[in-house]
């Protein structure tokens, strides 16, 4: 017993030293590096980088080394700085040979963000299906939540904490009639009051089939989405951008992002590849001409420019930010997962 106690004490001491010492050293010595902000300019067909220089402060430049003033950068990114250009009276009549109004630009601008920590989040298996046709301007959260069971779905009224059997049956039957196999493997939605409209839920059923589910005036709307041959969905994202062109984004088993068009439910392969939603963070700033995509991991940042019409890759830029000194050690948390466990990092 004494020997075991000694060994156990040695183990605990070693583990705590491997945890505390690197943490203390990193805390004292490491300085977080600043990553540049990058946007793709369709006018110069290059990325514009906003990087911090120790001596000159903020520096705006492209990948060829050309530097720009603030006003020049505003003009080179007209869809991003639309309000500034309008305020300055510098809004052009045409953009890339096309007559575009500031209103049109603002309507088609969007931003999308997904963090690995959110994808890996520990969620309670209760979901909110908002009313997509309430007739009200302001979005409201529903008065019930739903849970999926092996045989169907159940709506639970929040006020009474009881299952609404009639509504549950109606939605279950609708989904089953469309060929949905319970229980779903993946569920995506954006319950929020801070959006213009609701796109409902994207569901991946037990047989890996993709479905769209909405609630329209309390009644179910379900639609089966045909997947292109060989496409294995892995992660779903519902999008509710102002221009209503997209229903969602989908990441497949090969880490390629697909866009699901809202008007015809067709899936389009994008030029965004090598994106692992469970390990990488992604942000997309889109406009009517192109999307600037940032895929970041703790080691590198990849910037992609995607054509907004064809969704094909236009340009890429890889940056390895200076993360400063880092001493590896034992840690429990992770920037990509909320689950705690011993990790060597």
């Amino acid at each position: 017993m004494k020997t075991f106690s000694k060994i156990y004490l040695g183990f605990l001491t070693l583990a705590m030293l491997l945890w505390a010492m690197p943490w203390a050293i990193n805390f004292a010595l490491s300085r977080p590096g600043r990553s540049p902000f990058v946007m793709y300019s369709p006018l110069i067909k290059d990325f514009i980088l906003y990087s911090h220089d120790e001596t000159n402060g903020l520096k705006r430049h492209d990948t060829q080394g050309n530097t720009y003033t603030e006003a020049q950068a505003d003009s080179l990114l007209p869809t991003f700085y639309v309000r500034q250009l309008v305020t300055d009276g510098r809004w052009p009549d045409t953009l890339l040979g096309r007559h575009v109004t500031p209103h049109e630009v603002q309507r088609t601008n969007f931003s999308f963000r997904s963090n690995a920590a959110d994808v890996n989040a520990i969620g309670v298996e209760l979901y909110m299906l908002q009313e997509a046709m309430s007739g009200r301007v302001e979005m409201e959260l529903p008065s019930d939540v739903l849970r999926f069971t092996p045989n169907g779905l159940e709506f639970i009224d929040m006020a009474s904490n009881t299952v609404d059997a009639e509504k549950s049956q109606r939605f279950t039957e609708t989904l089953k009639a469309k060929g949905f196999a319970f229980p779903p493997r993946h569920i995506a939605s954006n319950p929020s009051t801070r959006k213009d409209y609701d796109n409902g839920m994207l569901l991946l059923d037990a047989q890996n089939q993709l479905f769209h589910l909405k609630q329209l005036r309390g009644r179910p709307y379900a639609r089966h989405v045909e997947l292109p041959e060989g496409l294995e969905p892995r992660q779903l994202f519902v999008t509710e951008f102002r221009d209503r062109q997209l229903l969602g984004l989908l990441c497949d088993a090969e880490n390629t992002l697909w866009a699901l068009r809202a008007n015809d439910y067709t899936l389009h392969r994008t030029g965004i590849t090598r994106f692992d939603p469970q390990r990488d963070n992604i942000s997309i700033v889109g406009n009517m001409f192109d999307w600037t995509v940032r895929i970041s991991t703790p080691q590198t940042e990849r910037w992609l420019a995607i054509d907004a019409t064809s969704l094909q890759l236009i340009d890429t830029l890889t940056i390895s930010p200076n993360r400063g000194f880092h001493m590896p050690g034992l840690c429990f948390g992770s920037p990509t997962s909320p689950h705690l466990r011993p990790r060597w990092r």
Partner: peptide
């Protein structure tokens, strides 16, 4: 000192259910 560090492990994260996987260990 060692006990304080060991007890700190229980309070590393305040995310609900963050310890689920680690809890048996």
């Amino acid at each position: 000192l060692l006990s304080a560090l060991l007890l700190r492990v229980f309070f590393v994260s305040d995310t609900p259910e963050a310890y689920n996987q680690f809890m048996p260990w």
